[in-house]
Design a binder for these strands. Structure first.
Lengths: 290, 290
DNA sequence: CAAATAGTGTCTTTAAGACATTATTAT
DNA sequence: ATAATAATGTCTTAAAGACACTATTTG
């Protein structure tokens, strides 16, 4: 029950005398891809506004990568987990106190931060865009939501790749700035990314954004993840638009409704003054009621 | 092209003078759940041997958790990524030079290591068991493969849980030692685990094993992950047994074969002297040939 | 032949895709 | 009425489940 080690010490004695030594230690950062889906300004009379997938970026005000755009993030404290650090960052940058948060992947390639050894634990958060106000953090120069688009690039016909790889071009724009990155993803071993080209993103954050988008796409089709992007009440067409902007392909209405029926429950409320037939409002189905 | 910061320095100058400061830094460890599937000793005449899912554990020879069993792992060096560290550990403990490796999750709860602040980046590796020899590492007291079983526990009817949680009991045995752990998994936020009971496992490694098993199960049904557990040539029944031992449920033969047909290609070789009809040998289908 | 596994055929069930039809509103 | 979206019905297609049947080997 209280075993002694080779030096005859109990665990308590061992811990009291433990010397962490001077092995090199990294800093550990928590970075976060914050997704939301917004409506584009509705241009035409009585048409539904288009949806856009957006990501929050912060313009770097100091070296390294001065002037480039980076994901929100910061160093983890010894008293918190990496997830708690991510929530703290989320709160500091957006004022949002709670949200869906999921750990993505830990990026640790030596040299990924030119300053020193920094391992980054990447997360994604999903926010409902209604009532979102970007609040500039203390140290942040500029903060803005960037529209995110991802176009797959054709397979290169390189003679016999060992791994199945896919390339895509990420494009991010906020109206003023247009950023891009070409990222190669090796589908083996979970997720291994390589940045082939990069216009305006700091660090290896293009990898992290690609990783977050992939996770979002992979999970949206067979989980209720998308509901975290919705306000409390929403129409099924709005929900379908969110799926479509994430998957970047149109879905068939009837099939979509069958598929997500068990995730939502209808209210007795309807939209009004929309220039066409009113649409029923739904809410997320609470757990266990199904 | 070469912007200056508030102090009028270029990035090069900034980096030359960069002082990492004395923020506290964690040690970063890479732990690894090494899975393999072995055949139980075949007891009866001309019957097929049963398959067992096994995990490699190491008995701790020093504090903390002296005498408990732990996953292979060790500290990451500044010149390697966490994945490279995991492969190094894998090689040291098993002699295997390459294998399927996938990053699982980063465990960072304060206090998870009683010595000091240690963040663990968990991985899983999949090995073909044929010709596997456990090689005791330098610092390892005992190394052994433990049969892994997981039984779901009934939902507790606690009044209104906020999160959907599932509980399961892990059982690990190597013949001499029998370990167990009861783990609660919150299916929200990717993966959040709580250890409710623990018999014989060191650190939070019960969480890591539960996390690895979940990943293995989730991915085996819609990827070719299981093929990493097979030798070069195998019968479809053997492959089905591997799926069954991972999923812990029987599969229908005809449906299974339809489903995995595109993952394998048949050879002209057959099993011999098995006491029944010979079985065709298959191999993993190389990429792009399909 | 008996015992065992190998391998396939086919009917049923379920989910998804495709598309048409009817309903309802604001101007 | 018209232009728009809302909502649902139903036929087709594809995949999975269920189960039976035939084939082939060794002892």
């Amino acid at each position: 029950m209280n075993p002694l080690d080779q030096n005859g010490r109990t665990e308590k004695e061992f811990l009291a005398q433990y010397d962490p030594g001077d092995y090199p230690r990294p800093s550990i950062a928590s970075d976060i891809v914050i997704f939301t889906v917004t409506s584009a300004a509705e241009d035409n009379y009585r048409k539904l506004p288009e949806k856009e997938l957006r990501v929050l970026l912060i313009k770097r005000g100091g070296h390294p990568f001065l002037g480039k755009w980076a994901l929100p993030g910061g160093f983890v404290r010894p008293t918190e987990s990496v997830g708690e650090a991510a929530l703290r960052e989320l709160r500091e940058e957006t004022g949002v106190r709670s949200a869906y948060l999921e750990q993505l992947y830990t990026f640790s390639e030596p040299g990924r931060d030119p300053r020193t050894w920094v391992v980054s634990c990447a997360h994604m958060a999903l926010l409902d865009s209604s009532g979102l106000e970007v609040r500039a953090g203390d140290d942040a120069g500029e903060v803005d939501w960037f529209r995110l688009c991802c176009t797959p690039l054709p397979e290169d016909d390189a003679p016999e790749r060992l791994l199945a790889t896919r390339r895509c071009r990420l494009e991010l724009s906020n109206g003023a700035d247009a950023l891009f990155a070409v990222v190669e993803e090796a589908s083996v071993h979970g997720a291994e990314y390589k940045i082939l080209d990069n216009g305006g993103l700091a660090f290896d954050h293009a990898k992290i954004i690609a990783c977050g988008l992939k996770r979002l796409r992979d999970k949206v089709e067979f989980t209720d993840l998308a509901l975290n992007l919705m306000p409390e009440k929403f129409t099924l067409t709005q929900l379908q638009q969110v799926y479509e902007v994430i998957l970047q392909r149109p879905l068939l209405k009837a099939a979509f409704r069958r598929k997500i029926a068990h995730l939502v429950s209808g209210t007795e409320e309807y939209t009004e003054n929309a220039g066409h037939r009113p649409s029923r409002l739904f809410r997320r189905r609470p757990r266990g009621s199904g």
